[in-house]
Structures are given as C-alpha cells and as structure tokens.
C-alpha cells in the first residue's frame, strides 16, 4: 500500500539506497500541509526534537548540507528529491548557498544524518512596527533594531486583519504593527517580505 508507507521508510530508502525519489506523486502528496498531518508527534513537551535542526550552512557537497547550529552543534543534512525547500518561496536545492540560515525538519537516520523532509532557508517570522515606508520597502523596528523589508512586486502578499491575501501593500500604515514572514539576506539587516500580516 503505497499510501501507507511512512515518511521514515520513504526517506530512508531514498537516502540509503542512493536513489532519488521520482517525485511525491506516486506515494501521495508530500506537500507540507499534508505531510505534517501524516504522523503523530511523539516528542515530550519541552524536550529537544531530534528530528529538527537549525543553523547556518557551512558547506554543500552533492546533496549533503552541513549546518553549524547556533548552539554549537553540527548537523549533517541529507536532501532528497522529495525534500520540500523554501527560500522566500518554494524553490529548488540549487538555490541554497553557503551562509544561509536554515530550519530543517526530517527523519534522523541511524548514522545521525537528518534526512530532510522540509527545509526553510533564511526564513524569519517577525513582529515589528512600521517606522516608515518607501518605494517597495518597509522600514521596520524589531526589538529595538531597524530592519529593511523589501517588497517584491508579484510575490509579496499582504493580509489585512485576516482578509484574503492581496498584493497591494499600500494600506500598510506608518506606526502600525505587523507580522512578517520573509527571507533574511544573510549578514545584513535586510529581508524580503513574503507575507505581511497587518494588525488593526
């Protein structure tokens, strides 16, 4: 029963067998929302999750990414053809670069490698207030620091008080509070805005 094959077997087979996964279609969707519903979570509340890693990319060799965790840990990440990759938007493995910040969820293999199920590069989720607005840019105050948020025409979406997302950011107000999902530009105080949620 292909649909009942769990992701651990799927990913382990793909990784250990050295073969790429020919896409998720044959085994059912691995789209994030479906994938996250597929397995119950068994980690104790409060505990570290061994199937999760974060850090900065120190090298990329073949399909293996090495991460230097912010806590000093080192992580070996195996990316497969079934890995869902986000970097400002859904993207492909070749867009990852050394220096990217990263969150990874996957399956820990016996040798300690994390077989990536989903990978988010440079993603940030910030609450801030708008200090000023320029052409395709928002100047944000976040924890007392200034961030430059770039609006990317055609990609940036705005959600005003829970209404459906639209591309028009002109309703954002100076002094207003916002939540921003975006992609950090490594080693700068700049981000590209994927979605901005505006408060009342």
């Amino acid at each position: 029963m292909a649909n009942t094959m769990d992701r651990r077997r799927l990913l382990s087979t793909a990784v250990l067998g050295g073969a790429g996964i020919a896409g998720a279609t044959a085994l059912g969707s691995l789209a994030p929302e479906a994938a996250f519903a597929a397995e119950p979570v068994k980690i104790a509340p409060g505990a570290p999750d061994p199937n999760f890693a974060e850090g900065r990319v120190t090298s990329i060799t073949g399909s293996v990414v090495l991460l230097a965790g912010s806590d000093g840990a080192l992580h070996r990440i195996q990316v497969t053809n079934g890995t869902s990759i986000w970097k400002f938007q859904p993207t492909t493995f070749d867009k990852l670069t050394k220096g990217d910040g990263m969150y990874v969820r996957g399956v820990r293999l016996p040798d300690g490698t994390l077989a990536a199920d989903s990978l988010w590069a440079n993603i940030v989720n910030l609450t801030a207030h708008i200090a000023s607005v320029g052409r395709n840019v928002l100047y944000l105050d976040h924890h007392g620091k200034r961030l430059i948020g770039h609006v990317v025409p055609g990609t940036t979406a705005a959600v005003y008080n829970g209404t459906p997302a639209i591309s028009d950011v002109s309703l954002l107000k100076v002094g207003g509070h916002v939540q921003v999902i975006g992609a950090w530009h490594p080693d700068t105080n700049e981000i590209s805005i994927a979605t901005v949620y505006a408060a009342n």
Binding site: P45, G46, P48, S70, V124, G144
Partner: peptide, 26 residues
C-alpha cells in the same frame, strides 16, 4: 524563535522563563 539563533532572531534571548530554545517543543 528564541535561544541561540541566526539573523534577526539572534537578539531574542531565552524568553520569560529563561529556557526557550527554537529546537525544543515549547
């Protein structure tokens, strides 16, 4: 995000309880 972190998250600290870590179920 909280605890040791990269990017804009680096300034967030360990939270009101002093234990917060991005990689934990918290």
């Amino acid at each position: 995000c909280c605890g040791s972190a990269w990017g804009p998250c680096a300034s967030t600290g360990r939270g009101a309880c002093g234990t917060c870590t991005s990689g934990n179920f918290q």
